[in-house]
């Protein structure tokens, strides 16, 4: 049981990071980013190339991943989402665009990196063994702690920096923010870049443990959607809560129900539907976000 909880915390910290980026993009632009999982995979592969193949330090690889993904995210916002949002009659049209971008990134990733499962050398050896009740490799602990640091850093950035304040204003009320002199276009772009960067960094962190392959983008997106739904769309604290809740449910569920096959996910999905029927806005969301 202790093992399941520790695993859940570790998993939750990764999930929360993924959900943070998705919810940020949703809050700023009302766009459901279907391509989020693909951005995660792209980040994983960039870390794989820089750290695994070129042999540069892991930290450098993470920085390279973050910068590349931020640029990709900014470009997607500026050249794709912005013109489409401006010209489409119904804002749901962005979903087709997001899905098309997801397909596109899937194709690019497949062509560039192939379909094989890729892994990199461990960043740290050894494992923590507490009386065989909790067994946890050091590298997982390090990645978990790193993710929590990034989450805290992100929250501080959103709370206290000028762009963070501008983005929160934008999320609350786009028109009002514009009237108060917030440069809406610019901060939408920064927000999208930041969201993409978070997705990529998680991919980069996790490539050291689970590896990466080009097919996992879609499933990751669906999980990210679920976390955002649990916590409430467009709310940062909700995304973090959703990430940890899903991580914990998966870990504990697999611990107790692994003998029944996929029943864990069936229970998670079904209970999510029931939960949303009772509380449509999630744990912390605004109604009808």
């Amino acid at each position: 049981m202790e093992q399941a909880i520790v695993n859940g915390l570790y998993l939750g910290s990764q999930y929360a990071l993924i959900a943070l980026g998705l919810t940020l993009i949703f809050a700023l632009m009302n766009v459901l980013n279907f391509a989020h999982g693909q951005l995660y995979v792209l980040g994983g592969f960039i870390t794989y190339v820089v750290y695994g193949q070129l042999g540069l330090p892991f930290v450098l690889a993470l920085v390279a991943t973050a910068v590349t993904l931020a640029l990709v995210g900014a470009a997607i916002e500026k050249f794709l989402f912005r013109p489409v949002i401006r010209r489409s009659v119904r804002e749901e049209s962005t979903m087709l665009l997001a899905a098309a971008i997801a397909f596109f990134l899937d194709a690019v990733i497949l062509l560039l990196f192939g379909e094989k499962q890729r892994g990199v050398p461990k960043i740290m050896d050894g494992l923590l063994n507490w009386d065989f009740r909790i067994v946890m490799p050091y590298d997982r602990i390090l990645i978990g702690v790193l993710s929590i640091f990034i989450i805290v850093g992100f929250i501080l950035y959103m709370q206290y920096s000028k762009p963070g304040r501008a983005m929160r204003a934008l999320a609350q009320d786009r028109v009002a923010a514009q009237l108060m002199g917030v440069r809406v276009d610019r901060y939408s772009m920064i927000g999208f870049a930041l969201g993409a960067m978070l997705a990529g960094v998680v991919g980069g962190l996790l490539v050291t443990i689970t590896g990466v392959n080009s097919g996992i983008g879609g499933p990751i997106s669906i999980k990210a959607f679920m976390m955002v739904m649990i916590g409430g769309a467009g709310v940062i604290s909700g995304a973090i809560a959703g990430g940890f809740i899903l991580g914990m449910m998966e870990s504990v569920g697999l611990f107790y129900l692994s003998s029944y096959g996929d029943i864990t996910y069936l229970i998670i999905f079904a209970s999510l539907m029931v939960f949303l029927a009772i509380r449509p806005q999630g744990l912390m969301g605004k109604p009808w976000g």
Binding site: F26, M95, M226, M229, M273, P280, W288
Partner: peptide, 11 residues
């Protein structure tokens, strides 16, 4: 409504 309905149906 909105994305909430979309996500629940996806699930």
């Amino acid at each position: 409504r909105g994305v909430y309905f979309a996500m629940v149906t996806l699930v």
